[in-house]
């Protein structure tokens, strides 16, 4: 009995845990048909890793589309919007702002609440190159099954505490 294609594919992707992995591996080593199939997976992986046909071009195309979409976005930040205000009202607003700033500066300083941010550990590195950090974590990579390269142009950062929730409970605003 030979393992089916999905099992062999999972074996190739290192998704089958021990001790089943060793048993299937043992079978594959002695079975020409299974070995050929595993070799074909290796070959596909190798080609995709080293010589992916047209990947650079399509990647470039996708990034350009994302960039074009960002440019086309009609969202104008508040600070860039033009608003017409009558001069007397503007003068009154300036006076109010100056008065307000003076008043708040006289108040005793309050401590900001800590908010809902996750606990933070700062890690020191000799330089701030994430590639060096990735090198440090290389042994972690051997356990990783899925590598995703995020679009370089997308601004990302922590936005509150990480969440895990049922899709049915999540409402997009």
């Amino acid at each position: 009995m030979c393992p089916d294609g999905q099992i062999l594919s999972a074996l190739h992707d290192r998704e089958i845990p021990s001790p089943w992995r060793e048993k299937i591996q043992e079978h594959v080593e002695g079975c020409e048909k299974c070995r050929d199939q595993i070799n074909s997976y290796h070959e596909v992986s190798r080609r995709l890793r080293h010589d992916p046909p047209g990947l650079k071009e399509s990647q470039e195309r996708v990034w350009q589309k994302i960039a074009a979409r960002e440019r086309l976005s009609t969202h104008v930040p508040l600070w860039k919007r033009r608003v017409s205000i009558p001069a007397p009202l503007m003068a009154a607003a300036v006076v109010a702002v100056i008065f307000g700033l003076t008043f708040f500066n006289l108040l005793p300083e309050k401590k900001e609440p800590s908010g809902n941010t996750p606990e933070v550990w700062t890690v020191q590195f000799e330089n701030h190159n994430l590639e060096d950090l990735a090198e440090l974590l290389k042994n972690r990579d051997s356990q990783v099954q899925v590598f995703i390269e995020l679009p370089r142009s997308s601004p990302m950062g922590l936005q509150g505490e990480p969440q895990l929730l049922r899709a049915a409970d999540y409402r997009r605003e």
């Binding site: 996750p118 590195f125 950090l133 936005q159 505490e161 895990l164």
Partner: peptide, 26 residues
Amino acid sequence: GTKYYSTLKSLPVSLGEKVLFFPLGM
């Protein structure tokens, strides 16, 4: 500089139920 954050979350669900994970928060 470089900062490290880690989190561990768990959720009991039914088989096949879709779950969303936001590793950077939401």
